[in-house]
Amino acid sequence: MNISVSMYSLASTIKKKNWSFLDFIEYAKRISLDGVELLDFYWSSGEDKREEIDQVLKAVKKNGLVVSAYDVTNNFVKETEEERAEEVAKILGGIEVAKALETKIVRVFCGDLHGNLTYEDGQKWIVEGLKKCAKRAEEEKVFLAIENHGLLAGKSEQVKDIIEKVNSPYVGSTFDTGNFLLVHEEPQEAFDRLKGDIVHVHFKDFREKNSGEGLKGFRSTKGVELIGTVPGDGKVDLSYIVQGLKAENYQGWLSIEYEGFDDAESANEEAVNRLKTLLK
């Protein structure tokens, strides 16, 4: 298994220091990573990204890294066909960018409930959209990796159900170790359900907010506030998941995603060291 870091893991530093893709890539090299996970909303060149993609790929190779995954920020839970077609187009475009970046993983979302929509409405649109995208993914041999995120695919059984309904060998799970806590599911149980579908891993941890803390955390479905931590300082049994991945002979990426309030550069470096220890 190889280790990368998600660009989102350095979101606070990127904002504070105005980092470009190139700055992020150089940081990843400094902390001895194998790869970088890039996000669609950090491009600066608008619709025509070809020149910027070339620059990024050259920088990745110059630093002895690879792109572990490319993340698309989509939402299929839209009420009109036109809106949902735009979300399909985002992922199809993401597949093209992933190919140009020489990665085989496109992280995708499903969507979230709003208004009077039901789970049944949302799931139907998600499956329909992913089926359309899966055709291109199969042609290009690129995996669409569904992250457990939000209300419509936050639980492992929801992710499993959607993967089975889409029924493509190129649609699997981005297993986010921390996000299950936001829907009050034990990550170990989620792993046992999804272990055969995992094609990409987000290595993340949360702790419960202490009373009196002024920090604004992520609010769970039951109103519990969770604060991002360096992996190992929170509630997730990361050793269980790493050992389980070894037992499954998982050969993919473990990508760190830190969402806490400490200095992101230091926190991610510490996360890399801890993950390397777990992998020994």
Results as ranks from 00 to 15, higher is better:
E257D: 14
L254F: 09
Y250H: 06
F206T: 04
G232I: 02
G232M: 03
G214N: 13
V236L: 02
I241K: 01
W253H: 07
D233R: 04
T221K: 03
K235S: 07
E248K: 14
G234T: 07
E248P: 10
I198A: 12
T229A: 04
E248R: 11
K204Q: 10
I241H: 00
G212W: 12
K222E: 15
V236W: 05
Y250M: 09
G234I: 05
V224C: 00
Y258M: 08
G212T: 11
T221Q: 00
N210V: 09
F206D: 05
E213V: 09
S239A: 12
G217I: 14
K222G: 10
V236R: 00
R219T: 15
W253G: 04
S239K: 15
I256K: 03
V242I: 15
V224H: 00
H202I: 03
D205N: 04
T229H: 00
I198E: 13
H200Y: 15
D237E: 05
R207N: 03
Q251G: 08
E248Y: 05
Y258S: 06
S255R: 03
S211K: 15
K204T: 07
T221C: 02
E225T: 01
H200I: 06
S220H: 08
D237H: 10
K216A: 13
K204P: 05
L238M: 06
K246H: 11
G228V: 07
S220P: 12
N249G: 10
A247K: 14
G214Y: 10
L245K: 08
F203P: 03
E259C: 09
V242P: 02
I227C: 12
I241Y: 02
T229R: 02
R219S: 14
T229L: 03
Y240V: 02
I227M: 13
S255H: 05
G214V: 10
K216W: 08
F203T: 03
T229W: 02
F218T: 06
W253K: 02
E225M: 12
K204V: 08
L215S: 10
Q251A: 09
I198K: 08
H200V: 05
N249Q: 14
G244W: 06
G217M: 13
Y258G: 06
D237Q: 01
F203G: 00
G223I: 11
L226F: 15
L215N: 08
V201F: 03
E213P: 12
K209F: 00
Y250V: 11
V230L: 05
F203H: 01
G228L: 06
E225Q: 15
K209V: 01
L215P: 02
Y250I: 10
H200P: 05
K209Q: 06
S255G: 09
L226A: 07
L254S: 01
F203S: 00
F206I: 05
S239F: 11
P231H: 08
F206V: 04
D205Y: 03
G234Y: 06
E225H: 10
E259K: 11
V242M: 01
G252T: 10
